[in-house]
Each structure stands twice: as structure tokens, then as C-alpha cells.
């Protein structure tokens, strides 16, 4: 394969980092106060919650499905865990148990989704749409306003800062991304997971338990949504019933910008981190430029659109390049023979 083609393919496959670099340079030049230490830390901090949803959504996309209920799991898990810890049980739970409970509830919601989709064969869109509404409704019923204040230990992950004024949330998020990147690349589980999304039929025939892979995908995503809920609750020192509203669509945008595809089998966790950072950077720069809140929302919508179009263009361009290469090789063969 010619070197030029290789480079072009490499750039297409890592489009997110190219975009991120371009956007960073652009902002560093035109946006005041953008390229300061404080602001960059701020971007990372504000991306943390969204990035967990992006990773969850991205992994589900890799497995060939989608999950709309993540944004409701984000509030449902900490909400129910908190209620259990403080009201429903005859005794008080300690904060660490509550944290574990939060994560477990997220994973259980995912398990329910996964089992319905993989075993009963419910359409993933309809399944998670209904769960999104059910969970949000339950939270509105159970938590009329918000639960506060929360325990220091419970809010530690979302609120505490460490050396250099870096929020604890930032390294936590980075470690989680690296962990999943490692799992996807270096374990048999990860490879079977990606293969299932790439071609479920072929994977099944190859002897992969594809149903189980799909269930794992939803469990992991539910778990990550609960982590996001933990960070969100920690940051605002309360569990409010509107947490996470409208975030799932942006999570799609982030995951697709990060290299995932609705067709499944594509994308890496590190790419998704790039997608999440790009989302955070865009909303940060719009803030700094003084764009109104309502317009920011429209801009985010535009962003989803751009993400989808870019994904199509990228795939088209890629197929075109590869097809041209094949034809070229065939012609060489013809001339040679």
C-alpha cells in the first residue's frame, strides 16, 4: 500500500484528534482566556460527567446497539441509593456502601436492558426509550425537588481537588478510560466484544456467546452512567431530579465524533475520550465567547448533525480510497499477467 494512502487512512481513523487539535489552536487564537491553566483544568472537569456517558454509549455502539436510558440511569442510581441510605432502610448506610450501591443499581438497570434485548429480542431503541421515560418518571415521583446535603465521602469523587487544584474527578475519568481501552485491546473478552458488534452473525457462528456480550455492554454502560451520576451529585452536593436531562443525545455525538459508528464494531475508548473532550471544549469556548445559554443548546444540536455527517463522509472517503487501491492492484495484476 502506498505511503500516502496509509497516512490518509490513519488520519481518517483518528479524525477526532485532528479535529481536537484544530479546534484547540483556533480557540487559543480567538477566544480570550481560553489557553490558561485554570481554564484547561476547567474543561477537563466539566467534561468528566459527559465523558462517562460518552464512553458508555460508545461501548454500546461498538457492540452494535444503542442506549437512550443512560441519562435517566445517571439520576436514578444515585437517587435511589441515597433514598435507601437515608430514608427507606431502618438503619443508616455508611457513605462507602452507598457509593457501591449506586454503582450496583446502575449495573442492574443495564442488566435489565441487556437481558430484554439479547434474550427476549426487544428492539434496543424501544427498550431503552421506555426505560428512559420510566426511570425519569420514577425519579420525579421519588425525589420531588432534590436530596441535599450529601455526605463528604459520597461527594469526594465529584467535588474534591488535589495537588495543582486538579479535581479528583479528572484522574478518575482518565483511569476508567485507560482501563477500558486496555480491556478492549488486550483481553479475549474485549476482542469478542468488538467482533460481536462488527458482525454478530459471523461472531455467533464462530462460537462467541454474542448474547452475553450484548448483556455485558449494557451492564458496563449502566455502571458508567452511575459513575457519571456520582460525579454529578458530588459536584452540586445534591441529587436533583433534572440531572442528566438531554445528555444522552450529546453522548451519541461524542461517541460518533470519537470514531464509533451506528453500524457497530468501530471505535476505541481513547477515541471516545477525544470525542468527549471536544464536546467539553466547544461548550467552554461558547461560554467564554459570551454566547447565550439557549443558543448553546442549538449549537449542540448542530454539533450532533455535524458529527453524523462527518461520520458518513469519513466512511465514504475511506471506502473510496480502499476501492481505488483495489482497482489499482487489479490493473497491475492484469498487466503483469
Amino acid at each position: 500500500m502506498p505511503r500516502k494512502l496509509q497516512i490518509e487512512l490513519f488520519l481518517l481513523d483518528n479524525l477526532i484528534w485532528v479535529l481536537l487539535a484544530c479546534f484547540f489552536l483556533l480557540n487559543a487564537l480567538i477566544t480570550p482566556m481560553f489557553a490558561t491553566y485554570g481554564n484547561l483544568v476547567n474543561i477537563l472537569y466539566h467534561s468528566a460527567i459527559m465523558s462517562m456517558l460518552v464512553l458508555g454509549q460508545g461501548l454500546i455502539l461498538v457492540s452494535g446497539h444503542l442506549d437512550l436510558s443512560l441519562e435517566s440511569t445517571l439520576v436514578f442510581a444515585p437517587g435511589v441509593a441515597m433514598l435507601l441510605a437515608t430514608r427507606w432502610l431502618p438503619f443508616q448506610l455508611d457513605p462507602v456502601t452507598t457509593i457501591i450501591l449506586t454503582l450496583a443499581i446502575g449495573a442492574l438497570v443495564g442488566l435489565f436492558n441487556g437481558v430484554c434485548i439479547a434474550k427476549i429480542g426487544v428492539n434496543p431503541f424501544l427498550q431503552t426509550l421506555s426505560l428512559m421515560i420510566i426511570l425519569r418518571g420514577l425519579v420525579l415521583f421519588l425525589v420531588p425537588l432534590s436530596i441535599f446535603p450529601l455526605d463528604k465521602v459520597y461527594t469526594f469523587a465529584g467535588q474534591a481537588r488535589m495537588i495543582g487544584n486538579i479535581p479528583v474527578a479528572v484522574p478518575i475519568v482518565f483511569i476508567i478510560f485507560l482501563f477500558f481501552h486496555f480491556i478492549m485491546q488486550y483481553t479475549a473478552f474485549g476482542r469478542h466484544f468488538v467482533a460481536t458488534g462488527g458482525n454478530a452473525r459471523a461472531s455467533y457462528i464462530s462460537g462467541i456467546n454474542t448474547g452475553r456480550m450484548v448483556i455485558y455492554a449494557f451492564v458496563i454502560a449502566g455502571f458508567l452512567a452511575a459513575v457519571a451520576g456520582l460525579l454529578a451529585a458530588g459536584r452540586q452536593d445534591s441529587v436533583s431530579n433534572t440531572m442528566g436531562e438531554g445528555m444522552v443525545m450529546l453522548a451519541f455525538a461524542g461517541a460518533i465524533l470519537g470514531g464509533a459508528s451506528l453500524e457497530g464494531g468501530k471505535g476505541t475508548p481513547l477515541g471516545m475520550l477525544g470525542g468527549a473532550l471536544l464536546l467539553g471544549m466547544i461548550s467552554n469556548s461558547l461560554n467564554l465567547l459570551g454566547v447565550g445559554v439557549t443558543l448553546v443548546y442549538a449549537t449542540q444540536g448542530a454539533l450532533i448533525f455535524v458529527a453524523i455527517v462527518l461520520d458518513r463522509i469519513r466512511i465514504k472517503r475511506r471506502n473510496y480510497l480502499l476501492h481505488r487501491e483495489q482497482v489499482r492492484r487489479l490493473l497491475i495484476q492484469e498487466q503483469g499477467g
Binding site: A188, R191, V194, A195, N199, R201, A202, S206, K266
Partner: peptide, 21 residues
Amino acid sequence: EREGLISNLSVRENLMLNALD
């Protein structure tokens, strides 16, 4: 194409899919 290969994965990943153990 439909049942044998995971076409967007690499040759290595396809070859080892059954033999990762």
C-alpha cells in the same frame, strides 16, 4: 462476507478470534 468474517477488523483479529485462549 456475512457469516465468516468481521470485515472491519484486521487480519490478525479475525485469525485469532477463536483461538484467543
